[in-house]
Computed example of a mutant assay.
Amino acid sequence: MATAVVEHPVENRAAKLFLVLAAFLVCNAIIAEFVGVKIFALEPTLGLEPLNWNLFGQSGSLSFTSGVLLWPFVFLMTDVINEYFGTRGVRFISWLTVALIVYGFLAAYAAIALTPAGFWVAVNSGRGVPDMQAAFSNIFGQGMWTIAGSVTAFLIGQLIDVAVFHRIRMVTGERWIWLRATGSTAVSQLVDSFVVLYIAFVIGPQKWPMSLFLAVASVNYVYKLLMAFALIPLIYLTRQAIKGYLGAHTAQQLEAAARVVR
C-alpha cells in the first residue's frame, strides 16, 4: 500500500507566505502597542513651526501617538492576508495578535516587579534619567485602561476590516484592489482611532476632556486614512511579488479560496 507523501510546511510556499505575513503583522502590532505610549508633535519633529491648528477648541502642534508610524503596515498585512487567505486567516491572526499583545504586557509587568540592581537605578543619571526603575515602569507599565483600550480597539477594527473587505470584494470581484483595501481601512480605523483613545484616556484615570479626545482622535484617524492611500502602490507591488513567489496558478487558487467567506 502506497504511503502518501506529506509536504513539509517549510517547503510549502503558501504556508511560508502566511507565516511571513502573519509574523510581520504581529511584530508591528506589538511594537506599536509599546511605543504608542509616547505622543509626539508633528511639526517640531519635522523641524517646522507649529501650525497652531484649532480643532474642537484645541490648538498647537498636531499630536499623534507614536504607534501611528507602524499601524499602516499592520493594515497592509491585514489586507494582503485577506486577499490570499480570507476571513479565517485574518481572524486567526487577529486573535493570535491580541493574545501575544497581552502576553507582552504581562512579561513587561513581570520585569517591572523584579527588584532592580542598585547600580542600575542611577546608571543613566548623567543622561537626565535619575531613576531607571521609575522610567522603565512608566514606559513599559502602561495602565490597564490603555492596554484594554488598545486590545479592544485592535480586535474590533480587525473584525470590521475583514467584513468590509469581503463586502466590497463581493461587489467589485477581482477589480479595484485599492478600493477594498482603503475602503476597509477607512471604516475599521474610524472605529479603532476613537475607541482606543476613549477607553484609554477618557474613561481611564487621565480623564481627558472630550475636546482633547476628539481633536487627537480625529488627527490620528486622518493620518491613518492618508497613509492608507499612500500605501496603495505598495499593495500592488506586494501582490506582484507574491504572484512571482507562488506562481500565477497557486496565487489564483488562494485568491479563489479566500473569496469563500467562512
Rank of each mutant, 00 (worst) to 15 (best):
L225I: 02
Q189I: 08
F165Q: 04
I156A: 09
A32K: 01
P44M: 13
S193R: 13
F73A: 01
S59F: 14
P130W: 05
Y223L: 09
A248Q: 05
G104F: 08
F136S: 06
V261T: 10
F136R: 06
S61R: 03
W176R: 10
F229K: 14
V123W: 08
G183C: 13
N82T: 13
V121W: 00
G104D: 04
S66L: 11
H249I: 08
N138F: 12
L48D: 01
H249F: 10
A134Q: 05
Y221W: 15
Q206L: 15
V222K: 03
R169V: 05
A29T: 15
I112W: 06
L96F: 15
E174P: 03
A14P: 10
H8E: 08
A15T: 14
T238E: 02
I203P: 03
L190Y: 07
I199M: 00
N138V: 11
V20H: 08
L48K: 06
G141D: 03
C27I: 06
N28K: 06
L237E: 00
L48V: 02
V222A: 15
F140H: 04
F194S: 15
S63A: 11
G104R: 05
M77P: 01
V196M: 09
N220R: 11
L51C: 05
L234V: 12
Y221N: 12
L226G: 15
V123D: 11
A153F: 05
L100C: 03
A134D: 02
V26A: 13
V260E: 09
A22L: 00
V187Y: 04
Q58H: 08
R13D: 04
V216S: 01
Y223Q: 06
V187G: 03
N220H: 08
I160N: 02
V121C: 00
M210P: 03
F64N: 07
S66Y: 06
A107Y: 13
N220D: 08
A111Y: 02
E11V: 03
C27H: 01
A258K: 00
Q142T: 03
H249E: 10
I203T: 06
A181D: 07
V162G: 02
I203Y: 09
I139D: 07
W178D: 02
P9A: 07
